[in-house]
């Protein structure tokens, strides 16, 4: 476990972490945009998508970034300029803060909070502030409606998300994300430890609720009322242009990636492979090469999950605001409470 950390001085570690953090946020975002937004969506809609920039349009994203950077940064006259400028940064920073707790390998992690789950869920809702602020400061009615919708929606779906995770915490007996990964990979199903014990097997209700809540947190269709391009033009982003819009755009997809990371840590076994394959007994016994393989495994799981998120996004129509609230409060929250109760009873009983 110790090998890498000991050889690198502290400033080097910090630098590595910063670069790793940027990579862990931007790499998934870029991959998601290219793979799903450009290519899978095009495939589903019987078109080719971008084909000109680079082979199969793979450089399209860079071209888009270049385009946005060149565009004029327009601030509406009546806007609260300082807050207006700050809003996209809040959204993006919350994504960076979120990725900090995600473990990518036995040592490949940024920080090892003992209450990582708690931190992740808390930080995950910071982006609401950014969105609300963006909606309010734009001095635009569409933006305001979008911002308010976002606030209502994100708060409503924060709750089922937290409750869905509680089941995992009960089962793992820890709020530390690294411990949750270990618990899943060192576990066994009725004595058979061939695949470890990913929590999705017992917590499939929790997993489903978590993914729905993630969909809502990300304001993806069918929960994209805050943006709702056919009603509110572009919701809270209506007035943003140029690189501020770009920051929102990156934030949107980066957050999708990070939430998919967290979901794969909580439910799908995270970076780990079943410890029994190599006879590892505990976290300390895990070989150092997992620090390389782990992130790849994480990326694969993340892509599967974001693939589902995007698939739903491209094929579903959106809810109405009141239907969305009803769905959260009347379906998801009671369901997740029941899930907690059942989990707790089984945990005590077995």
């Amino acid at each position: 476990m110790m090998s890498i950390a000991l050889e690198i001085p502290y400033w080097g570690q910090s630098l590595l972490r910063v670069l790793g953090g940027i990579g862990a946020v931007l790499l998934p975002a870029g991959t998601i945009v290219y793979l799903f937004l450009f290519k899978m969506m095009s495939f589903m809609q019987s078109r080719l998508g971008p084909m000109e920039a680079g082979p199969f349009g793979s450089m399209q994203l860079l071209a888009e970034v270049g385009k946005w950077l060149q565009k004029e940064d327009i601030i509406p006259e009546n806007a609260d300029a300082k807050i207006y400028k700050l809003a996209p940064v809040i959204v993006l920073v919350s994504t960076f803060l979120l990725v900090v707790v995600v473990p990518f390998g036995p040592d490949a992690l940024f920080t090892n909070f003992s209450a990582g789950v708690f931190y992740a869920l808390a930080i995950g809702s910071v982006s609401v502030i950014g969105i609300l602020v963006a909606g309010w400061s734009s001095a635009n009615k569409y933006s305001l409606l979008g911002g308010l919708r976002a606030a209502g929606q994100l708060i409503a779906y924060e709750l089922p998300m937290v409750l869905a995770v509680v089941g995992v915490v009960i089962q793992a007996g820890s709020m530390n994300l690294q411990q949750i990964v270990v618990a899943q990979n060192s576990g066994s199903i009725f004595g058979w430890d061939g695949v470890g014990f990913p929590f999705v097997l017992t917590q499939f209700v929790g997993f489903l609720i978590f993914m729905i809540a993630v969909q809502a947190e990300l304001t993806q269709v069918p929960f994209d009322m805050p943006i709702a391009e056919s009603e509110l033009v572009s919701g809270y982003m209506t007035e943003y242009s140029g690189f501020r819009f770009l920051i929102f755009f990156i934030g949107e997809f980066a957050t999708a990636g990070v939430f998919a990371f967290i979901a794969s840590v909580l439910f799908l076994g995270g970076w780990g492979i079943p410890f029994s394959w190599f006879g590892w007994e505990s976290l300390d016994a895990v070989d150092g090469w997992m620090n390389i393989v782990g992130p790849v495994i994480m990326l694969t799981k993340m892509l599967v999950l974001t693939g589902i998120i995007m698939w739903v996004r491209f094929s579903y129509p959106r809810f109405r605001e009141d239907q969305l609230q009803r769905f959260a409060w009347k379906v998801l929250i009671p369901l997740s409470l029941a899930n907690i109760a059942v989990t707790a009873i089984l945990k005590v009983a077995i």
């Binding site: 019987s46 069918p222 994209d224 709702a228 056919s230 491209f314 579903y316 959106r318």
Partner: peptide, 16 residues
Amino acid sequence: LGVQMGAVTPVFMAFR
């Protein structure tokens, strides 16, 4: 109809 409710895919099928 789909686009008006946020589903982007049907419109491309319609155009096709």
